[in-house]
């Protein structure tokens, strides 16, 4: 009986510490960023990206995506192997996300054996024609914004923290309201506003599944309010810690992708 009491006490203290940490908005956003973008050391998934226009017409692209973290919260490598539509099939795309400078992007067009470096000064540009930007795909660094905890709110069945993030330097949005789930510390919803308080874009985590003990957002949606359209990204066959080698993220394998990258 005594043991149970002391265990309860320990649990109580632990949970208190936990919530005290969580209430620090910046720490919370950092944790969400790491959970969302840096799960384990690497990961691979088959991706289906569908853009749904105002009139309901759809455009779908399918590709494989492999990620490798060079440092948690730091630089990352991404390799994308396109599968459909067939005119972009076999095309590959390599992104080195540099935290301290512009990303390095390289595209390979097999039909003309062309390796092309792509100017990457604008992180807000669309990711392969979708409503997601490059930054949405690789994640916005938490240190770029000031964060303020506004309170708590429920998103469906999930209890969540509500946080307002304001860019330290002027950016393509004025502020962002995020709802971070208490349980998994993952973004459930993000609303981007302009300076007139108009809602511009909404991100929602449509589905969360546990993959190799990692809670993972497997269906992600980005809505563009102005254009009245949205993009849905579905991740399937997710695998973490596949032990992918750094050397595969090079021009050699861009032109001749290793089987583990396809």
């Amino acid at each position: 009986m005594k043991l149970i009491k002391s265990l309860t006490l320990v649990a109580f203290v632990l949970s208190f510490i936990g919530s005290a940490v969580a209430q620090d908005a910046e720490a919370l956003m950092k944790e969400a960023h790491l959970n969302y973008n840096y799960a384990k050391d690497d990961g691979k998934a088959k991706v289906e990206m569908t853009l749904v226009s105002t009139k309901g017409s759809t455009k779908t692209k399918k590709f494989s995506m492999v990620r490798k973290d060079l440092k948690d919260g730091g630089d990352q490598l991404y390799f994308i192997y396109f599968k459909s539509p067939s005119d972009i099939k076999r095309m590959t795309f390599l992104v080195k996300k540099n935290v301290d400078s512009d990303d390095d992007r390289m595209l390979y067009v097999p039909a003309i054996d062309l390796v092309k470096k792509i100017a990457a000064s604008d992180k807000a540009s669309s990711f392969v024609g979708s409503d997601f930007s490059y930054e949405d795909v690789s994640g916005r660094l938490w240190t770029e914004d000031n964060h303020e905890l506004l309170g708590e709110e429920k998103v469906g069945e999930y209890a969540a923290f509500k946080i307002k993030s304001t860019p330290k330097q002027s950016d393509y949005f004025d502020y962002k309201i995020s709802l971070i789930s208490k349980k998994d510390k993952l973004p459930l919803r993000e609303e981007y506003y302009d300076s007139q308080n108009n809602l511009m874009r909404v991100f929602t985590a449509e589905k969360i599944e546990v993959v190799q003990d990692v809670p993972t957002i497997t269906i992600r949606k980005m809505e563009n309010i102005d254009k009245q359209q949205h993009t849905i990204i579905k991740f399937v066959s997710i695998k973490y810690d596949i032990g992918i080698q750094e050397k595969y993220f090079s021009e050699r394998y861009l032109k001749k992708p290793h089987i583990s990258l396809k």
């Binding site: 100017a119 000064s121 604008d122 807000a124 540009s125 669309s126």
Partner: peptide, 10 residues
């Protein structure tokens, strides 16, 4: 010399 002028113009 190549660069993007806006998010949709190169």
């Amino acid at each position: 010399y190549e660069r993007s002028l806006t998010t949709t113009l190169d």
